[in-house]
């Protein structure tokens, strides 16, 4: 464990807590893509298949349970809660996310560390995580403005990826056998996807204006 990875896990956890805070505090999920949340829940469920078979550390197990529980909580809240679900931008959140699932699965069948059930689903979850933010970014683009908590949510998600890239660089130089090239390449793609959002987030923060994404 290094400070970059720990910081990455904490900002990842904060991003989910910010999301839960926004939904419970405002009793609204406007500006949040349900599809992105469903994709994230799928990412955690398919990545942590080894939750009960491989014990790595108490921290690792607890964080896996927290990520699975919180991502499912967001999806259930957005789908079930009678007040929250009314504020869901159903007609804006129209990204065909099934294509993302299919593309990630096909890629996982072709590119994986070992052609076993667990490894294929692990690679699938890595590829899907890189693409999962797309429906959310498209929704923000369409809704034009980004309210503070949603902007912070995407910001913390981006920070989590950036810390993980620092973690991989650190591990590359400190561990001789370290070779997580699938996660590294996919993580880089994911961070690039955030880059344009960060650009507009920074511009709006600098101008102290409400964040406007170009239509």
């Amino acid at each position: 464990m290094n400070i970059f990875r720990f910081a990455g896990d904490m900002t990842h956890l904060i991003s989910i807590l910010v999301l839960l805070l926004k939904i419970y505090a405002t009793k609204s999920c406007s500006g949040i893509s349900l599809k992105t949340q469903e994709l994230y829940a799928l990412v955690f469920l398919t990545r942590y298949l080894d939750l009960f078979t491989d014990f790595i550390s108490v921290y690792n197990t607890i964080m896996k349970l927290v990520f699975i529980a919180s991502s499912l909580a967001v999806v259930c809240c957005m789908r079930m809660h009678r007040v929250v679900r009314r504020s869901y931008d159903k007609d804006l959140d129209t990204f065909r996310h099934y294509f993302l699932i299919l593309a990630s699965f096909v890629l996982a069948l072709l590119v994986n560390e070992k052609f076993t059930f667990q490894e294929i689903f692990w690679a699938f979850s890595i590829y899907l995580e890189a693409l999962a933010i797309l429906p959310q970014l498209v929704l923000l683009q369409r809704s034009g403005n980004v309210d503070n908590l949603t902007g912070q949510y995407v910001f913390f998600l981006g920070a989590y990826r950036a810390f993980y890239i620092l973690n991989w660089i650190y591990r590359y130089f400190t561990e001789q056998h370290f070779s997580r090239w699938i996660a590294c390449v996919s993580g880089l793609v994911q961070t690039v996807l955030y880059a344009d959002f960060f650009y507009y987030y920074f511009i709006s923060w600098k101008n102290n204006a409400k964040m406007q994404l170009p239509a």
């Binding site: 491989d54 560390e113 490894e119 056998h177 997580r180 996660a183």
Partner: peptide, 10 residues
């Protein structure tokens, strides 16, 4: 084995 070693991240 190698792939297991690399699964210590979340």
């Amino acid at each position: 084995d190698d792939s297991k070693v690399n699964k210590d991240e979340l």
